[in-house]
Structures are given as C-alpha cells and as structure tokens.
Simulated assay, not measured.
Amino acid sequence: MSTNQKTYSLTHQPRIIFDGAVHHRNNFVKNKAFILNIDLHYLPYYSSNLSSIEQLLSVMNEQFRNSI
C-alpha cells in the first residue's frame, strides 16, 4: 500500500446516492460498486421534495399568496 492510501474500518456498508443520469447507471459503476461492497441507491427521476429550488419556490409562492 502506498503512503497516500489510508484504510478505514467500516462498521456499515458505504452507500452512494445517485441521480438518474445514464453514466451513473452503467455497468462499469455497478460492477465497481459490487467489488468495493458499496450499496448504490438511485433517486427517482423527478422528486420535488428533494429539489432545493422546488422548496424555495414553494416557500416564495406561499408568502406571495399570504401577502395578497
């Protein structure tokens, strides 16, 4: 092992959360994750609850409606 590499003791399986981009769903990524024992999770194609701009617009819309 080189001096730049570090090892960590993991008590839980690492997880990565990806969006629906094609390059995140290819076999290369899935195979590497399998080899490294990484659990992959994918977001739904559209989720307004997870989008920061959607949350901001919702708050602004509510304030606008309440000010009229």
Rank of each mutant, 00 (worst) to 15 (best):
F34D: 05
N49T: 09
N27M: 12
K32V: 08
Y45F: 09
P14G: 04
D19T: 06
M1F: 09
P14Q: 04
L56S: 06
L43S: 01
R15K: 14
S52Q: 12
V22F: 14
N61C: 13
S47C: 15
E62P: 00
E54Q: 10
S47L: 11
T7Q: 11
F64L: 12
M60Q: 11
F34Q: 12
S67E: 14
Q5H: 08
Q13E: 13
K6N: 11
S48V: 12
F18I: 01
N37W: 05
Q13R: 14
H41C: 10
H23L: 06
S52V: 08
H23E: 05
Y8E: 03
S51F: 07
T11F: 14
I68F: 08
I17D: 02
N26R: 08
I16Q: 04
Q13N: 12
S52Y: 03
S67T: 14
S52G: 06
S51C: 13
V59H: 07
R65I: 04
I35N: 01
I35P: 00
Y45I: 05
A33E: 01
S51A: 13
N37E: 14
N4W: 04
I53L: 07
V59L: 08
I38Y: 00
S51I: 08
K6V: 11
F18S: 00
F18Q: 00
M60K: 09
N4M: 02
N66R: 14
G20Q: 06
M1S: 09
S67G: 07
P44N: 08
Y46W: 05
P44A: 07
Q63W: 07
Q13L: 10
S2A: 10
D19E: 05
F28M: 05
D19R: 04
L36V: 01
L56F: 08
N27T: 05
L10H: 09
F28N: 05
N37K: 11
I17N: 03
I16S: 02
F34C: 02
E62L: 14
N31V: 01
S48G: 13
L56T: 11
F28S: 05
Q13G: 03
I16G: 01
Y45H: 09
N27H: 12
V22D: 03
A33M: 02
I38E: 00
L40G: 00
